[in-house]
């Protein structure tokens, strides 16, 4: 029925078998961000760094979304705002805020992610952004889940 989560944020945490320094680089460096999210990423990975991320398979047909780094404190905090309009400065009310917190955990890293801004901007916008950003990588999303799903089916039969 109603999920336990609040409706104005998404919160996730996961353990990664890599040092906080490595994880920080993967979540903040545009070179790496391109590998896990948009097709293009152009921004300085420093506090206040403004730029854009692009979705699309070729350069002529790229949808650009505004992106601005809020805080960058290696290797423990990286936050940014995205989806504000061109020419606007990213702020509460015109963009979604994503905060990554990193904490050493054993040999690896505990990564926490919180995205907020849905109350101010509306979920339809977030959904459109999410679908746009991920339809290309749909298989990346479904393939890792397949074994789990098959397992569920087996358990049911």
């Amino acid at each position: 029925m109603m999920p336990g989560a609040e409706y104005d944020s998404i919160e996730r945490e996961l353990h990664i078998d890599a040092s906080p320094e490595v994880v920080f680089d993967v979540i903040s460096n545009p070179e790496h961000v391109r590998e896990w999210w948009p097709d293009e990423a152009e921004y300085p990975a420093v506090a206040g760094g403004a730029g854009r991320i692009g979705f699309g398979s070729d350069a002529d047909d790229m949808t650009w979304v505004q992106f601005q780094v809020v805080e960058a404190i290696p290797p423990r905090l990286f936050s940014f705002r995205w989806t504000h309009d061109v020419g606007e400065s990213a702020a509460a009310g015109n963009s979604f805020l994503v905060v990554f917190e990193l904490e050493p955990a054993g040999e690896g890293t505990l990564l926490r992610m919180v995205e907020t801004g849905f109350r101010e901007r509306g979920w339809a916008e977030a959904k459109a952004a999410a679908e746009h950003a991920d339809h290309v990588s749909g298989w990346d999303f479904f393939l890792p889940r397949l074994p789990v799903y098959l397992h569920t089916l087996e358990a049911r039969s």
Partner: peptide, 22 residues
């Protein structure tokens, strides 16, 4: 369902982050 869609998008991004970092 809208909440689930946006959440699922982040789950897939985080899985990719994990794979790349590791």
């Amino acid at each position: 369902a809208q909440l689930a869609d946006v959440t699922a998008a982040w789950d897939s991004r985080l899985l990719r982050i994990k794979r790349i970092a590791e």
